[in-house]
């Protein structure tokens, strides 16, 4: 087993997982709900990027910002339709989980209608696929680009949450929604911007995933949805740094279990880990202990 090669694979795959899971974690940290339609937003992001290249002839690098904005808008609509009415009524968190499942089924079925179920790809030659020469491991330029974009986006998000007014407000709302509202923070607006950011991250992850595997169907969200869940549980639900680390851990586990010949058990290993983390350390690897235990 070529350990260096596997590490390289784990790192770029992990960056996509982390980027995807960050949106999950962001929404969970601010609203305390699990948005199971996040993977559907991810898939729509991938398709918006693809369509902007195929149909509207935009250059491939433009697919990323277009998809981020498009997916962000979808996420905002999602919050208005599936989450806001339930929150206004003070419904239990479980109802929001179920409404997000309904929204997810709707979005995936709609994508089947609009884009069809045949795998689609970026035009041939638009993505450099030849491996870079002179290195002890195999890596393509696009994998490096994916890694760089993902890391830059994650760094920007972290900066935004830690250093800007918006991030400060988001953290205030996450800490206590009512107090934040009394202190003059527009809580509804914060929810909308949180969803927009989470959607944009999902859209970016979708485009990068699309570039990496270059075969897109409306079902690409299914596999990553459960991976993303594992990632945020590993990192501690709602913990942004945790989601970052978790993405690389899950990707590493996956890549190395395939390399060790256990590709049939790849997902079983990931989910067993999920199971154990929840039982032994529900606050996640990096999390602090909560007052109300899981």
């Amino acid at each position: 087993m070529n350990v260096t090669q596997q590490l390289v694979n784990a790192i770029w795959l992990g960056s996509v997982y982390s980027l995807f899971a960050l949106g999950y974690a962001l929404v969970f940290s601010v609203l305390g709900v699990l948005n199971l339609a996040h993977s559907a937003v991810f898939m729509w992001g991938a398709f918006i990027g693809l369509i902007s290249v195929i149909q509207f002839g935009l250059p491939v690098w433009m697919a990323l910002p277009v998809a981020m904005v498009g997916a962000g808008v979808i996420a905002v609509l999602l919050e208005r339709v599936a989450f806001a009415p339930l929150r206004a009524r003070g419904a239990p968190r479980i109802s929001q989980l179920i409404s997000s499942i309904g929204a997810s089924i709707f979005l995936v079925s709609l994508a089947q209608l609009v884009f069809g179920t045949q795998p689609q790809r970026f035009p041939f030659g638009s993505i450099p696929t030849d491996a870079i020469e002179g290195l002890p491991f195999r890596v393509t330029p696009i994998q490096i680009i994916i890694l760089v974009i993902a890391v830059v986006l994650m760094a920007l998000l972290n900066l935004m949450v830690q250093r800007t007014r918006l991030g400060q407000r988001m953290r205030a709302v996450a800490f206590n929604q009512r107090t934040a509202g009394l202190l003059g923070i527009n809580v509804g607006g914060i929810y909308l911007s949180t969803f927009f950011l989470a959607g944009a991250l999902a859209g970016a992850a979708g485009v990068l995933y699309g570039l990496a595997f270059n075969s897109m169907t409306p079902f690409i969200g299914d596999a990553i949805a459960l991976k993303g869940l594992t990632v945020i549980v590993l990192g501690g639900l709602g913990n942004i740094q945790g989601a970052l680390v978790g993405g690389f851990v899950v990707a590493g586990l996956e890549v190395f279990s395939i390399a060790a010949g256990g590709s049939n058990y790849r997902d079983a290993i990931v989910f067993t880990l999920l199971f154990l983390i929840l039982l032994v350390r529900p606050q996640g690897l990096l999390g602090r202990k909560e007052i109300t235990r899981a």
Binding site: R93, I94, L229, V233, L237, N264, F271, L274, F275, P282
Partner: peptide, 23 residues
């Protein structure tokens, strides 16, 4: 072990169980 968990945590753990059974 699993029923010590509550709402979303229990949901996620049981999703994990379902996937392990399937695999």
């Amino acid at each position: 072990p699993v029923l010590r968990l509550h709402d979303i945590y229990l949901a996620i753990a049981t999703i994990g169980f379902g996937e392990v059974v399937r695999i």
